[in-house]
Design a binder for these strands. Structure first.
Lengths: 329, 329
DNA sequence: CTGAAAGCGCTTACAG
DNA sequence: CTGAAAGCGCTTACAG
């Protein structure tokens, strides 16, 4: 393998000079530069990142911790992160927890031993251990999707968007609005969205019924079951349901179709996620678009700022959203 | 940051001993081991990968080059790769070309300078420059999805699966079978699948009509347009269409729905990809499942073998597939 | 069973 | 404008 020493020898200079040339710092005479340039071109030399990294403590790599890469949301976010990072000559090192919370902490440590320059975490929960691991990190950490205290985070407007969805349903004359959510382990989705649902009903003086709040576990099947409970065990049936993810909404819709309910005539469905799927379902799904790819880009941008040592990196950035009004509400 | 020197000092041994302990090679007395163990535990010490990598020329990182991470196929493959790799304590470094062919070659070089131990490439085309870059690589490369000469590859059974799909259509009594494909830049999809389509028609003595072969560019819209050409400009209309990707099939279906054709009564649709979407479309899509996640796992497995220096790493592995018979055919 | 020494490929003051 | 030297944190023969 060609090293800086080979280049130096072939160009007839010292390796300090080659290094200066490479990093464009310090002086290098034009003739020397020319010779070095040529040799590098001929050999296809590329400096060893490990050596550079050992020396400079910078690797040009950002670790990304996520619950599951084969998920539309996650892969979109990573795409956004990656686009921005690549422009800045950084690369992404993947760390997939397979939805295992404890692995997040493990990875925060592991990634540091791999000398990443920073870590972007797609948040799924909040715990004191996780917060501690983040505080103890010697590289900057940006969290996406959870409002982690004391941490630079890109937050989705869960509350606002949900309010708008519920108000849109009210505007469309639905009054019996039910809710399919998830547990509180995921505060952004489990707590914020539910709070928005409850608050909005109250604001318009509608009763909040416990049986109209059903929880699932993000799976399609759990959406199906939640809808079943809503339709079979409630004393009175809802005429609209807000579902906190597109996937669970698919399950819910499946239940309705299996039982000959028409959407939105009998039951309207509003969802969250703006998956590709949502557009091609029948009826097409009214859903909240959190623009995950842009959120990823934004997080990468904050990361770059942090790495450039900017002090005024905002701690909290609320990302935008759009309500995609389609045919299911 | 704690280094091996700190650990050595705190445990009262030399750093050689700590290193031996860490790598479980060479002798370390029980007492020494115990003291080292404790110190490591207390400090949370993790060896610097850059230093290890510089010294041993191994990084524990595999580069994955792909056309677009936010694609269902790619993210599934990466998920499979990652699962297997993580078990073996390797991690994935992402390289997304944004569909830019030239970047594949660039990344093969860049990843090597980052000292990856191997590269897995989700293939999208074949060119002599690319093949040269692969030959010149000093780390093992495994290609997924294209039959790259001289290269360890995991290949999808494009030909076989397409034959089965066409035969299934024939079995279902369709005789006017058209084809929506892509250009030949992607040999696996553009050449193999088309060849299978043509061969099968011939085998059953059916005429192959040029107007019934329409090409798109992987986009939903191009599927729409291809179907339009099939239905509007052909002298006689097909009663079934095989589409080489689910995405283009969605476009094709959209066209049919927009023009009040019924699926499969007027036109049957067979696709490829087994996207999540395909199951929830109406009608649900009959499609070929290439089991991308497993293909990824398989590629990772071959990579591990290559890294362990096994000589008998198979050069070509044809992966399996399933035909998902649903309602669109 | 253990430690001193060399070296992996770089960068960075420093002296000239 | 340029080069010699030190050092980043490891591992690996080698000598004891």
């Amino acid at each position: 393998m060609t090293t800086i020493n080979d280049i130096a020898k072939m160009a007839g200079v010292s390796r300090s000079t080659v290094s200066r040339f490479l990093n464009k710092n310090g002086y290098v005479s034009e003739e020397a530069a020319k010779r070095i340039q040529d040799v590098i071109h001929d050999t296809g030399y590329m400096p060893s990142q490990s050596a550079q990294s050992l020396r400079t403590k910078k690797s040009g790599v950002i670790g990304v911790i996520l619950p599951k890469i084969s998920t539309e949301t996650a892969s979109r976010v990573v795409s956004g992160i990656n686009q921005f990072l690549q422009k800045n000559h950084y690369q992404v090192l993947l760390a997939d927890t397979s939805l295992n919370h404890e692995k997040e902490i493990e990875f925060i440590r592991l990634l540091q031993s791999r000398n990443v320059d920073g870590i972007i975490l797609l948040g799924t929960h909040i715990s004191t251990e996780l917060m501690r691991a983040i505080q103890e990190s010697r590289v900057p950490i940006v969290v996406i999707g959870q409002d982690m205290p004391e941490t630079t985070s890109v937050i989705y407007p869960d509350y606002l968007a949900t309010v708008e969805m519920i108000e849109y349903m009210l505007e469309r004359k639905y009054r019996q609005i039910a809710y399919i959510g998830v547990g509180e382990e995921d505060p952004a989705i489990g707590i914020e969205r539910k709070r928005a649902y409850v608050d909005t009903l109250k604001k318009y003086h509608l009763t909040v019924r416990e049986q109209w709040i059903q929880l699932g576990d993000f799976s399609i099947e759990s959406g199906y079951q939640a809808m079943r409970r809503l339709m079979e065990t409630s004393s009175s049936r809802p005429d609209a349901v807000f579902v906190v993810t597109d996937r669970m909404a698919i399950g819910a819709i499946q239940y309705l179709k299996d039982h000959q309910y028409r959407i939105p005539e009998n039951v309207a469905i509003g969802a969250t996620g703006a998956s590709t799927l949502s557009k091609y379902l029948e009826p097409s799904l009214t859903t909240i678009d959190f623009q995950n790819e842009e959120a990823g880009t934004l997080a990468a941008q904050l990361m770059m700022k942090a790495l450039e040592g900017e002090d005024e990196v905002e701690k909290k950035v609320i990302h935008s959203y759009r309500l995609l009004k389609r045919d299911s509400v």
